[in-house]
């Protein structure tokens, strides 16, 4: 559960969250390089990447390092701002931090000496955990930022996800903006009249949420009217042609090959040994 400090209570989070979601959905006018990468290819590559990253042993910091290249590469190729992704990671990092921080407490066997500095296994596994967190979480954010939500949904449908699930993913994404705007307005109206209090009393929260819920129900009914008026009978049709070409297959295979090589061989170790062999 996310324990929020009181000063970030209320709307700042909602506003910024929705803002960042809108930003992510940049107009298609500005073409990006990997726009042409099939979303299924991106999806599969991302999953393989995450599976490989998480499969590293808990102390294998070194072996993990070459995998930094994937998110860096994709981000730069697509002009994604590492800063924006970093800020999001920072926001959700407490969850991983809170559990990871126990490692140094429970595992204090010294496994490494850097000069006079003794490093315990716990600190190393903690570092590995945080590196894994940054890599996996940024891979997910990159996936969403590159493909765009609707294209990803089409990819999911093509990958045999149930249709109902995909349709209401689409609807939810569409109506998050409106509902969040509505919620924003209600909370703002509350906060301008609650002068000294920080946060919101439970009682107020209950009725505010109830009101928001009733509005949501009304909206759902109106949307349903608009849908049946245009012949809705359970299917939400989307025209999107996905053409996976040789480039997409190559994209998946080359990256996967790299991930597997990086998983099987400790590349930094090899590199270091090679360099020291040459120059020693």
């Amino acid at each position: 559960m996310k324990g929020m400090p009181p000063e970030t209570c209320g709307m700042s989070r909602l506003d910024s969250a929705v803002g960042s979601m809108k930003d992510q959905d940049r107009p298609a006018g500005r073409e990006r390089t990997v726009r042409c990468i099939d979303p299924r290819a991106m999806l599969i590559t991302t999953f393989i990447y995450i599976a490989v990253v998480t499969s590293f042993e808990k102390f294998d910091l070194l072996g993990l390092l070459p995998l930094v290249i994937y998110p860096l590469f994709i981000m730069e190729l697509n002009n994604l701002s590492p800063g924006a992704i970093g800020r999001k990671l920072l926001y959700v990092s407490p969850c991983a931090l809170m559990i990871g921080i126990f490692n140094p407490l429970f595992d204090n066997r010294v496994v490494l000496h850097l000069g006079s500095l003794a490093v315990s296994g716990g600190w190393i596994s903690f570092t590995v955990l945080m590196v894994k967190f940054v890599l996996t979480a940024s891979a997910a954010l990159i996936l969403a930022a590159i493909c765009g939500f609707d294209t990803l949904c089409v990819a999911l449908e093509k990958l045999k996800m149930p249709k109902v699930f995909v349709s209401q993913l689409l609807f939810m994404h569409r109506y998050i903006f409106l509902t969040a705007d509505e919620a924003s307005r209600m909370v703002r109206a509350h906060s301008v009249r609650s002068f000294r209090r920080k946060g919101m009393k439970i009682k107020v929260f209950g009725s505010l949420c109830g009101q928001l819920l009733l509005r949501t129900l009304d909206r759902a009914l109106r949307i349903r009217h608009a849908m049946v008026s245009r012949g809705f009978r359970g299917d939400v049709p989307l025209i999107r042609e996905l053409k996976a070409g040789k480039g997409d297959t190559a994209f998946v295979f080359l990256w996967t090959a790299f991930f597997i090589i990086a998983r099987c061989f400790n590349l930094p170790q090899l590199l270091g040994a090679f360099v020291m062999d040459k120059f020693a």
Partner: peptide, 15 residues
């Protein structure tokens, strides 16, 4: 879809 959006928004309002 609408209720999902509602829960999403409501989870970001803290009391």
């Amino acid at each position: 879809g609408a209720l999902g959006a509602f829960v999403f928004a409501a989870q970001m309002i803290n009391f």
